[in-house]
Design a protein around this nucleic acid. Sequence first.
DNA 1: GCGAACTGAGTGAGGATTCACTCATTACGG
DNA 2: CCGTAATGAGTGAATCCTCACTCAGTTCGC
Lengths: 224, 224
Amino acid sequence: MSESSLSSRKSPKSRPRAKGSSSRRSGDKRERILTAAVRVFAKNGFYATRVSEVAKAAGVADGTIYLYFRSKEEILVSLFEDRVEKLLSFMNERLPAHPTAPEKLRAVIEMQLGLLEGERDLAEVITVILRQSSKLMKEYAAPRFREYLDAIGRIVALGQHDGSFRTDVSPGIVARALFGALDGVALTWALGRADGGGLSRAAVQVADVFLLGLSPPAKAPVAK
Amino acid sequence: MSESSLSSRKSPKSRPRAKGSSSRRSGDKRERILTAAVRVFAKNGFYATRVSEVAKAAGVADGTIYLYFRSKEEILVSLFEDRVEKLLSFMNERLPAHPTAPEKLRAVIEMQLGLLEGERDLAEVITVILRQSSKLMKEYAAPRFREYLDAIGRIVALGQHDGSFRTDVSPGIVARALFGALDGVALTWALGRADGGGLSRAAVQVADVFLLGLSPPAKAPVAK
DNA sequence: GCGAACTGAGTGAGGATTCACTCATTACGG
DNA sequence: CCGTAATGAGTGAATCCTCACTCAGTTCGC
């Protein structure tokens, strides 16, 4: 039964020597698999995607995947960790640069949508696919989301405290609504060519509506 | 709904003719299966749910499921058709009763969230699970969503036309953002109890923010 | 008894994961 | 510098397990 493997070597394929860098475990294999996974997951969804499809798209053998990931699901987790997490921390770094709450909020909006602009597949993975693994969603992503929502909520609370936002709404609800609004815009944009504007145009409009919607009653001059 | 009798095995019980109308299958089995499916799908997700689990939760045999549904996926489609669709048309009927665009918009918001209040599992199925079947999503749900979004967009456009809404934002983007905001609020509410208020309180706040955010520049008629 | 409604063990397909093997590259002895 | 051995990343067909779905049989209302 093992003899059959003799004939297997069908494609010599000229080993992708590539990057003259490290010759051993080519460090870009993992990255290649992740990039391919984003593409394929976005196209077919997580469950409908065969590991072998990811392998083919990445130009590696099925087995190679398991040298870098323990399971199919771990590919999804890694995608989340490798990309989203990075973006969240990036956001945390940039925020302090914006002095006022309205500016911070606008920055968050622009970042969240800006990140996805030009990364349609990644946008789809994050907005849709991630929700397909309920285990992932509940055990891993949920806490992260909460963290992110809390950060937005804190900005809202800050604005309420210094008088730039109305105080009759719950920061938590506003945070959820804002996140949902951005998620929704990104979702429809990712799924089918939304409207001409692109995400950055949408970002400006969402920001405009929310900031006006959050402006304090009567006297407050923030209106803008 | 937890009906008495009907232990897992043989059941001597009398067959409940139910809806005296249709003569074929006892009408409440189908309903029972759907109800169970909502529960189980919400708990485990669509793909992680075994048909046998739905059967057990519904108190029927595996095979019985296939007397009422052609496939596992059809259960999901039927859920959508039986519940959501009904709600959408219900919404379409109620809307004309509200004369102005702001009132219509507030009504939509209250309806969308009100529907889910007290139906946590259904909320989760709609917000999360439905996105798990990409076939369903793309072939069936997407057109419905578009239809719904268009309806919201039309309300926004109407308000812009009669001067009650600002005109510098795209109705389509506002519709998406609003839908997303409601979806996001419902999602976090469904996944882990949100904050004390419950969905109806959230609905009021989301409406407040959006309506103020949409008010035209000159003066705010809605201001309050 | 007849047949519609129902049952649930069994089946087969699909697909994730494994593992025996290949071979480019490196290490080393002379 | 060579030839030879050792190494381990990479491979992909075989394995094996998990369900969605089937259907021969049972139950029960009429």
